[in-house]
Design a protein around this nucleic acid. Structure first.
Length: 509
RNA sequence: GCGCCGAUAGUCUAAUGGCUAUGAUAUCGGCCUUCCAAGCCGACGGUCCGGGUUCGAAUCCCGGUCGGCGCACCA
């Protein structure tokens, strides 16, 4: 593992093994869009399923929904996406440099330019004779650039029929809030979760899957009683969890981050809300439990000027990609901003009745532990990818629970084809399996290693007589013998991690 | 979006205006093979797209697409 792994290595690997292809490749591809191939689709589904089980099915306090991608256009007016995503840009007539109009005006005139309309901006540019900061030439008319994809609903393509492909899944949790609470009989604190597609017309998609125009999110909006910012009933679960912490203060003082336990971060006042500590640690644990390397993560606090105006505090869970530490998820305190926006725009009461105070309250979102599926996919691939020089092949050390193929079945020799297939046919309905009789046995192990098959079952000449097979472990290449009658049970326990490999059968030399 | 650079089988790669576009690897079929990419035979597969220059273009020119880097952008 001498050379550093790059995003190119991963993207080439993904294409050659059938994990990911550029979208519509036979027509030249589409920038910012990707297709998941046979192995990629399995892996991605496994990640989503593992997320759903961990965050929804295994918990009492979180329920899931699956909302439509196209929602009422007013949803995006209420959420601020129509205004905020409409970055107004100005271009230099000569050097063609483009600027965010609001940034340009703030810089030139030292005034707040947030939220100005294109017309106002043009007036300001004309009145103050603002020129291109780079080449001092005249600036062109400002124009809007909206990151949301637009479409028309119904037969008429008019201004009234404009709708948007959702740029995030979160809004559905607020819009459907009342129905979910009533039908699921939820009591605060609780969360609403969703996994689904979102679309953003990014100016410049980069870094393979990291920034694309169509992506999938796994998202939770977690609601608490407005007064209970400091009362997290689950906080004891994570007190001893260790993580690399990089607070705003450390960033401002140009210090490095520090590895610490959550109880330390809380008692030292670095992380203020136990809810944030809980969600940061829980999300980190989710990645690590599924095979990610704990040391490639850090939690970083937003600097005061990075925070959204409604947010009390915000922390990102970041991963150390080859192109730097990048955000995987933002654990942000959104207060009651979103629900209030929808109350205002829809004129519907979205408050809950508080039995204790006998008053109506609007819950606060204390955290939205949300992340991109595609980014998680990259994380697991990066941490699993091992170019094993000794073996002479890549070993994809994916956790068996998310590995796209769980078991490989090989006849030691071609004459054992019939016996091996019989066993394979019994087990393929229980696990995703692959049968391989092509080439030498070593070649088949190598092939299996490269796509991350954790266990390979080899049928040999003793199988008929002794009713035994060999299971070979991907990561250690060690082998055990087990009875064919036990095979199903042993494989299951290995895949879910209930038993150590060497203790699952008779270890061979 | 802008600027610079690039694009040859699934992957990596040779060919700098001239033979049927090179080789490796992967894949598939066959032989062989008693546990870690052994060997032999065979097959499939390529100059990103469109136009131009030329007797002749993978090669030169123009436009587009895609990708890399830098800038900008990043709810």
């Amino acid at each position: 593992m001498a050379e550093k792994l790059t995003i190119d290595n991963i993207s080439t690997f993904c294409k050659s093994k059938g994990f990911i292809y550029p979208s519509s490749e036979i027509y030249g591809g589409m920038s910012g869009f990707f297709d998941y191939g046979p192995l990629g689709a399995e892996l991605k589904n496994n990640i989503k399923q593992a997320w759903w089980k961990f965050h929804v099915q295994d918990r009492e306090d979180i329920v899931g929904i699956d909302a439509s991608i196209i929602m009422h256009p007013n949803v995006w007016k209420a959420s601020g996406h129509v205004a905020n995503f409409e970055d107004i840009l100005v271009e230099c007539t000569k050097c063609k440099e483009r600027y965010r109009a609001d940034h340009l005006i703030e810089e030139a005139l030292k005034i707040q330019a947030d939220g100005l309309k294109a017309d106002d901006i043009q007036k300001l540019i004309e009145q103050n004779k603002i020129k291109c900061p780079k080449c001092k030439s005249a600036l062109d008319k400002p124009g809007a650039f909206n990151l949301m994809f637009q479409t028309y609903v119904g037969p008429k393509q008019s201004k009234e029929s404009i709708a948007y492909l959702r740029p995030e899944t979160a809004q559905a949790m607020f819009v459907d809030f009342k129905q979910v609470v009533e039908t699921a009989r939820l009591k605060l604190p609780f969360g609403i979760a969703q996994v689904g597609r979102a679309f953003r017309n990014e100016i410049s998609p980069r870094n393979f899957l990291f920034r694309c125009r169509e992506f999938e999110q796994m998202e939770i909006e977690y609601f608490i009683h407005p007064g209970s910012w400091e009362e997290c009933p689950y906080v004891d679960e994570i007190m001893d969890h260790e993580i690399f912490v990089y607070s705003a203060e450390m960033q401002q003082k140009k210090e490095k981050g520090k590895k610490m336990k959550m109880k330390e971060a809380l008692s030292d006042g670095i992380i203020k809300s136990p809810w944030h500590a809980y969600w940061l640690a829980t999300e980190h644990k989710w990645f690590v439990n599924l095979g990610a390397n704990p040391n490639n993560f850090r939690v970083r606090q937003h600097l005061p000027d990075e925070k959204a105006h409604y947010s009390k505090d915000c922390w990102d869970l970041e991963y150390n990609f080859p192109f730097g530490f990048k955000e995987l998820q933002g654990i942000s305190d959104r207060g009651d901003y979103d629900l209030q926006q929808h109350i205002k725009h829809s004129k519907k009461d979205l408050s809950l009745f508080d039995e204790e105070t006998k008053k109506k309250i609007v819950p606060h979102v204390v955290a939205e532990p949300s992340q991109g599926v595609d980014r998680a996919f990259l994380v697991f691939l990066f941490d699993a990818y091992n170019d094993d020089k000794e073996r002479g092949n890549i070993v994809l050390k994916l956790n068996p629970r998310i590995a796209p193929v769980k078991v490989g079945f090989f006849p030691l020799m071609n004459k054992l084809d019939k016996e091996a297939r019989e066993i394979y046919n019994c087990l393929r309905k229980l696990f995703v399996c692959q049968y391989d009789k092509s080439g030498s046995i070593g070649r088949r192990y190598a092939r299996a290693d490269e796509i991350g098959i954790p266990y390979c079952v080899t049928v040999d000449f003793d199988t008929k007589e002794k009713k035994e097979v060999t299971i070979r472990d991907r990561d250690s290449t060690k082998q055990i013998r087990v009875q064919v009658s036990e095979l199903k049970n042993v494989l299951y326990r290995l895949i879910v991690g209930e038993v150590e490999f060497e203790k699952a059968g008779k270890l061979i030399k």
